[in-house]
Structure formats: C-alpha cells, structure tokens
Nucleic acid binder design. Structure first.
Lengths: 225, 225
DNA sequence: TTCCACAGTGAGGAAATGATGAACATTGCG
DNA sequence: CGCAATGTTCATCATTTCCTCACTGTGGAA
C-alpha cells in the first residue's frame, strides 16, 4: 500500500486516479492546485506524487521545485501532449517520470510501481543533453533559450515547441501528421497549413540559420545539421 | 494498418466508423452486440476494439470484462453523455479510453492511434538511423537522404518513394501492378507508362548506380544488389 | 532477318504543393 | 473591458512535380 498525493485542478481526473488507486489498495489524498500540494507534501510523507502540469495558482513544475526543497518525494507528471515539450525532460526538477494525456489509469499505476521501487534503491537517471549548438545557433533546452550569434532570440511558445521538437529529432524526416501529433497534440483537429505558418515564422526568427530547416516536399520537414 | 472491431447496435454508427477507418487504411469487422463481439474477439486478434456501452443482449462493460478473460486487446468505449458516468471510470475493466457521443470519427481515429501505439511498443528515444548501402549508393530511410559517392542526391517525392520501395524489396521481382498499388496507391487508375517515366528519372538521378535497377521484360522491375 | 510487343525517352499541360501575407480567433493580462 | 500577443485559417501565387502521349529503341521468337 502506497500513500499517494494526486494533484490536478480537474476533479474528474483526480477522481479517476483515486478510484483506481484505491481499488489497488492505496491511500490517496487530493489537491486542486500547486499551493495545496505543497501544503500537503509538507505535512505528510507520500510515497509518490502524481501532478498535473497545468494548474491555476501554481503550476506543476513550480510546485515540484518547491517541494524538492524540503522533500525527495518522487513525482510523476501528467501533461498534455505538446505542452512545453522540452520541460518534460526537465529532470533537474526531479521529475521521475511523466505520462501524456490521455492516459489510462492502468498505465499510471504501472509507472507508479516502477517509480516507487526505483526510489527505494539507488537513483539512476538518464542524462539528456541540455544544450545543442549548430554553428552560431545555440539551443538551451533547460533554460528554454535560443541564441543566435550571441543574441537571444524571442520566440513564441509554439515556435519554441516546434523548434525543440525538430532539434530533438534532427536528421529525421518528419511528416506533417507526426508534427501535428507531437507538437500540437493528438487532439488538434486543425489545418495542415498551420504548420507551414509556424515554420515560416520560425525560419524568420532563425535568421541565417533558417537553412537548417529543410522542406521535404510532399512529406513535411526536417532539421538538418 | 490496424485490425479493428467495431461493436454497436446501431448500424449507422458502425457504418460511419467503418468508412472512416477504412478510408485511413484499416481493416474493420463489425458486431451488433456484446455476444457477437466476444465471439469475434475470440476468433481474431484485433489491434483495438471500439465498443458502445448500451447494447441489447450484452452491454459493453460485460462484454469487455468477458473479453479480458482471454485477451488483452485494448478497448475504446463509446458512451452517451451522462450514461452511468461513474462506470466509465471502471478502468479495472481494462478500458483504455472512452469517447462521449456524439463524437467525430476523426477524434475516435486519433484516439485509436494513441491507444494502439501506447499498447504496442515502449517509446523509443534514441532512433538508430536505418541505412542501406550498395557500393557508393547510400540510402537513409530515416533522414530520407540518398547519397551517391558522397554527394546528396535530390529526388522528387515519387522518386524517393519508388526507390525506397524497390530497395525495401531488393532482389524481388516487382510487377508494374504491384508497384502501382504499393507506391502510387490502390486508387490510382493511371497509365502504365507512368512507371517507366519515373524509373527513367530515377535512373538518371542514380548516376553509375542506375545499374541496380533491372528491367524484367514483360513483368516489371527489380532492385538487384 | 523481320516483326512486334514491350521498354525508353522527351516534352507540354495539368495538378499538387509549399510559401506567404493578411484576416480572423483566441488567450492572457492590466 | 479592451488591448496586445499569439495562434489559426484562408486565398493567392510561384514553383515543382506528375502524368499522358507520341515517338523511338530493342530483344527475342519465328
């Protein structure tokens, strides 16, 4: 039996997870936002915290960071696909795993078992490279900065997400569908052309390094370095 | 291509889903109630089952439970709004996701993709590029590059597709019909000569390695290495 | 050698595709 | 509420790519 803290602003989701967890014999507390989560994490010792990224008052990342200041409770993040893609790799926050919505509670429970077991023994994390450089183009996944010839570029969130996804998959041909699914999310039912527009803006913002973004006619795009 | 079982007592709904799924290249079986669904699920291996909750003879929940006794096929539930809301969360039944009526087929398909992928393989992070080499001809299926004696070749989409298909089936005799069907698509009703033209252009682009594309008189072509 | 069915080739018009700018919608914030 | 920033859709345009077709080349059977 684990003691679990479920943090999400949607009562539905909390409810689903709670039911399933209790069905498996665990004990569950709930919190509706990051602040409450911190309160509870301070008072009680949980075996694991399941936390949504998007929440009012205080988001999941910040809450996680805060909690880490006083406890090492393992955290499983829930996130919508395409949601600040890069931060999901922010293991420096101490996130132990994450699940992309829509998830099956079954999957969440399976992962929790892995996390808790792992936590009781030694922690081994796979290190993801935090900075990538291509000539005068520097991309910092951790700080979410893009630096062009020494100058920090200002990209919109979608532009960041798109660029980060392209770079994470550099030298891989990516179809429009793949991009939509991974960057926009499985639940985006919009126009293909949206990608083109964002590619356009991204290219404009990359100045001389627009050359890295290659159009694959009849297919999609590729970051070629 | 997925093998899908659609279970609903309304023929309309089955039809809509079937059409859409087949349009996307999947193969669909139908069942009108829970009993039939169990029969079919026993006989065949589906990648996913789409099942309505409310059905005569045997409802969706019960059918799902029954199927789970012998197979782990992922299940997507369809339910009317407000229909035994709580039971939808009976994930102990092994329901992987659900969609509330009225739904868009597009959405259902999107979710199916998520479910099947989630269920099949664990996520791969580092992709090892898939490369084939024949003397000075290098074909990278991942980056979609063709390199001839160290120089990158520029092929049109159809040329890539054709080459990739030939190489994937190297040393296999391919009839014109087979090529049309696989590279152009089953719904292409054009001239045979079209292939010849593309083979011609492909050969021109392959320089010295045009020799790998062998004409089989009276039959078709072959990539011989 | 002749024949002819089948393959190779070049060119022009049709169709598909991506880039782009602007309109429109949505979101977040003071 | 209204504004500014961001994201999405849409129409247009230039370009690439595709397909058809008429013609030429060719291998092998009789």
């Amino acid at each position: 039996m684990y003691k679990i803290l479920v943090v999400d602003d949607e009562a539905n989701i909390r409810e689903v997870l709670k039911e399933y967890a209790e069905f498996e014999g665990h004990q569950v507390d709930e919190a509706g936002d990051g602040m409450q989560a911190i309160e509870l994490a301070k008072k009680n010792d949980y075996d694991v915290i399941i936390m949504d990224v998007m929440m009012p008052r205080l988001d999941g990342y910040s809450a996680c960071k805060e909690i880490r200041k006083f406890k090492q409770t393992p955290v499983l993040m829930l996130s919508a696909r395409g949601e600040e893609y890069d931060k999901l790799f922010g293991f420096e926050l101490g996130i132990d795993d994450y699940v992309v919505k829509p998830f099956s509670p079954k999957e969440v429970m399976a992962r929790i078992n892995v996390i808790v077991k792992r936590n009781s023994t030694a922690q081994v994390f796979a290190v993801t490279p935090e900075i990538e450089r291509f000539e005068g183009l520097e991309i910092n996944f951790t700080s979410r900065d893009v630096i062009i010839d020494g100058e920090k570029a200002t990209l919109t969130p979608k532009e960041y997400d798109l660029l980060f996804y392209l770079v994470h998959n550099k030298n891989i041909a990516l179809t429009r569908n793949k991009l939509l699914e991974e960057v926009w999310g499985y639940d985006f039912f919009g126009d293909d052309r949206t990608i083109d527009t964002h590619i356009k803006m991204l290219r404009n913002n990359l100045g001389p390094y627009r050359k890295f973004i290659v159009t694959l006619r009849g297919l999609g795009y590729k970051f070629e370095a």
